[in-house]
Computed example of a mutant assay.
Amino acid sequence: MAKIVYGVSGEGSGHSSRARVIATHLVERGHQVRIISYDRGLRNLKDDFDLFETEGLHIAQSENQVSRLRTLTENLKKLPQGHARLKALREEVFKTMQPECVFTDFEPMTAYLATYYDLPLITIDNQHRLRYMVYPCPEQLSHDNTLTRNIIRAMIPRPDVSLVTTFFYGELKNSRTFLYPPILRREVLGLTPLKGDHVLVYLTGEFQRFIDILPHFKNERFVIYGYDREETVDNCQYKPFSKAGFLLDLAGSKAVMATAGFTLITEALFLKKPYLAMPIKGQFEQEINAHFLEHMGYGLNVYSPSVDVIQGFLDRLPEFNSRLDGYRAEDNSKILDRVDELLANDCALAKAFHDLRKRG
């Protein structure tokens, strides 16, 4: 069995949700796994896995828009700690454990050390579709598209194999990239979707302009997560975070209105829920997710929500439901099978891809 270092971005919860599925599978197969993460990834995984805390990047936002200045300044403050944790990661994990293979879900320190120690590097994420897949991009996002590809290249310079999760499929740019259905939590796979009478709202930061619109829809009921409150105001029921409660409200909703994070979109699609996506402006991945969603007919891509826009979304729910009937909901078996293939016979296939990438 293989010794594996698994880097997991701690920005948001999607990376750790995906990594939990993969790491659980690896452990069940008898592999030795050491997870490297921070922030939400640390909090979400530390109780169940052998975990080393590192330092990582964060995106600052307000009113559903990225604050580039705050993002820059807050991350610059962390450079000294980041350098110290990189040195500790090298000494306490890589030198001690001597891994045979490195996995990363958009965590750069493990990616750089995989290259330094000449180890096979496998990426499992949705970010690499933006680097290695051909897809339609709105003209107004072309600059951010190029910038995002360059950031991904800087974060993870030399992946040997990229296992890419996606709900939109395009042509691939190389023979070392493979597309798979979104990785879903076991709790999601076990849900039974129902057509309830409420709309689920999920926000990752303050977006009061949107919240102020909802009382106009007196015949609708909105269940709101992300504000860490427990109260009902008019037709809006605020709920504190609860993984089980959130999933039940998602499964029982008639639609979702939320930011455009990959994980929630794909869970909603699996449960056949129409989605009004409000991408965080300046966060290209969310913007392209929302573009794909609307392009495929599963919901709307909305930058500036208004009474008319939300009413239009609600009026079109039958249309979106009809399109979602054709969405192919799949489990995680395909990508887990590929992971097993890469690690079989002392990581023979992972090492073969590593050699192939080095030969150019």
Rank of each mutant, 00 (worst) to 15 (best):
R209A: 14
H25N: 09
F246G: 05
D48L: 08
P159S: 01
A84D: 08
A268S: 14
S67P: 11
R176D: 12
R176F: 08
E231R: 12
L343G: 00
I310A: 01
V199H: 01
P215R: 06
P279K: 08
F49A: 13
C137G: 04
F292S: 05
H354G: 00
Y38G: 03
I213R: 00
K272R: 15
K3V: 06
L342I: 01
F320M: 08
K173M: 14
Y38N: 01
D331A: 10
D234V: 09
K195M: 14
K334H: 14
H15R: 03
R186F: 15
H143F: 13
H58T: 14
D197Q: 12
F270T: 03
C137P: 00
L57H: 06
S13L: 14
I35V: 13
T146P: 07
V33R: 02
N126K: 06
L163W: 03
V27E: 12
E267M: 09
S175Q: 15
H291A: 07
A154M: 13
R34E: 12
Q81R: 14
T166L: 02
Y202T: 07
A23N: 03
L269Y: 10
L324H: 02
G12A: 02
N64I: 06
S62H: 12
L69G: 04
L194F: 08
K254E: 04
P120S: 02
L141W: 13
